[in-house]
Design a protein around this nucleic acid. Structure first.
Lengths: 199, 199
DNA sequence: CCTTATTTACACTAAAAAGTATAAATAATG
DNA sequence: CATTATTTATACTTTTTAGTGTAAATAAGG
């Protein structure tokens, strides 16, 4: 019978340090020595918790994903203009793009996954689930007779395609989007979507 | 007076080898030794042509950009359905996404640019110019009275947002898109666009 | 206060890769 | 053919960093 003590404190400190080191200097250039120093731990302790840099990275990703699961479900409301409700969906994406920490983290993560396909594969296994609830919302709006959509999955993709490109991919690789520009685009995307699918 | 001989042959062999090495193994893991070997040149020769790996990378990018400048202008045609003409614009993006070599190259290039911001900055200086001719086409269509658009620049962005997300970013980071799926999306994008802006 | 799980300091190893030096070999061009 | 610009082979330096070994120090928890 082995006594177990609470290792979580050092472990969390290491993950926290790794998150910032990876964001700051990228996966390859953030050395284990540097991470240990920032975590106020010895390098040996880092390796006692995470047997390799790759394992540490995966833990960092998981830590981040954990934090990001705050299912922002937007329920369909019969007596609110569709425009306003769709705006909220678009706002979800805009919200991510203006969260500097989150964007930097994702930029870093994509960099790693492009550069190290083997790590990417392992990370992707634990990913999945990408439902924003838009399709459910569309189904409700159709049932309520306010939208005419044959294929709500397809319509959902149309909407997210517009938003993702402008509010996610572009800012991700080309830097933050101007706020008023974002507003203009958001309005136009919603208007375009409604032109196609509303009665 | 120094006699100049033709060094372009070796130089091109090196660039060619570097292109494939970078695509195959990524910037960091493609060593100068490996590139030299693939180019059937000595490492010293590689360094005689390109004073550093970074300089070589920039030459590779330039080589690629040079090849990609085949201005596929699509002129406005008064007596052809708008749908068919817009399809061609969408096809431009689909075309890129199904060019495996091109996508692999761009994936690699983005990886480098995310991972090495200093290189990214230098590469970006020589970039610019991203006009696909859609806005000009829209202007013509508006002048011809077949579309009603206040801001053709904005409308152009709406169209490219849809297409870029589905036909570029997603395939770039998540692998090739199914052909029939691409066809479905393309149709829906064009239909959505026309629902918003056609008479 | 004792036991011992956990952490630390520090000195290693091993590997990889960028870039350099130099003298000899090769081949373009007049 | 002769000249010499270019290329080659080879051995080298330097730097960086992942990961390990070990004995001593620390501190959690009963």
């Amino acid at each position: 019978m082995i006594k177990q003590r609470d290792k979580s404190k050092k472990r969390n400190a290491i993950i926290e340090a790794a998150v910032h080191a990876f964001i700051e200097m990228g996966f390859d250039r953030a050395s284990m020595d540097y991470i240990a120093e920032k975590a106020e731990a010895s390098k040996r302790t880092v390796y006692n918790h995470f047997e390799s840099k790759e394992v540490l990275f995966k833990a960092v990703i998981q830590h981040f994903v954990q934090q990001s699961i705050e299912e922002k479900q937007i329920p369909y409301q019969a007596n609110v203009p569709l425009e306003a409700q769709l705006n909220k969906f678009a706002e979800l994406k805009v919200g991510i793009s203006t969260n500097q920490l989150k964007m930097n983290f994702m930029r870093m993560a994509f960099g790693v996954m492009i550069t190290h396909p083997n790590i990417a594969a392992q990370v992707m296994e634990n990913a999945g689930n990408n439902d924003d609830g838009l399709q459910a919302w569309l189904d409700d709006a159709v049932a309520d007779g306010r939208l005419i959509i044959e294929d709500t999955a397809l319509a959902s993709e149309v909407f997210w395609s517009m938003c993702s490109s402008a509010f996610f991919w572009m800012p991700m690789l080309q830097g933050e989007l101007d706020a008023s520009k974002a507003e203009t685009l958001k309005k136009e995307f919603v208007a375009t979507f409604l032109a196609r699918y509303s009665k």
